[in-house]
């Protein structure tokens, strides 16, 4: 095999090894150390606790629109679904009745806000 051609082949192999190493580092240690997650990617128990915090604030402020805005900030376009998912998780995991009631009250308030665009037509 001509020497020049052999060098090109080894060069391409070296690039391949480098790409593999780069992808391994990028998906491994670099990804783990990076703090870049969004709220909507939180584990369900943390999301439920966030929804509980929104419920606690709603009980204090009485502002359903503000509560809905805080839930939309998570990244889920449907605050109603966010709360219902949180309530389902809370019921399955025996949350305190007081906390459950706060989330149920928030769910009622958001339902009454009528945020669904289809029903407003």
């Amino acid at each position: 095999m001509p020497n020049r051609r052999r060098r090109w082949i080894f060069f391409a192999l070296a690039i391949g090894v480098g790409v593999a190493a780069g992808v391994f580092i990028g998906y491994g240690p670099a990804a783990v150390e990076t703090e870049n997650a969004e709220l909507r990617t939180l584990r369900i128990d943390y999301l439920t606790d966030y929804t509980l915090m929104v419920s606690e604030l709603y009980q204090h402020e009485g502002n359903a629109a503000m509560a809905a805005a805080r839930l939309i900030y998570i990244g889920d376009p449907s605050p109603k679904e966010s709360v219902e998912t949180a309530i389902a998780f809370a019921q399955d995991n025996q949350y305190a009745p007081k906390d459950l009631q706060l989330m149920l009250d928030l769910a009622d308030a958001i339902r009454n806000l009528n945020l669904d665009p289809e029903s407003n037509q």
Partner: peptide
């Protein structure tokens, strides 16, 4: 080659 590949992979 390895360095170029590493950068591309990252």
């Amino acid at each position: 080659g390895v360095i170029i590949g590493l950068l591309l992979g990252l």
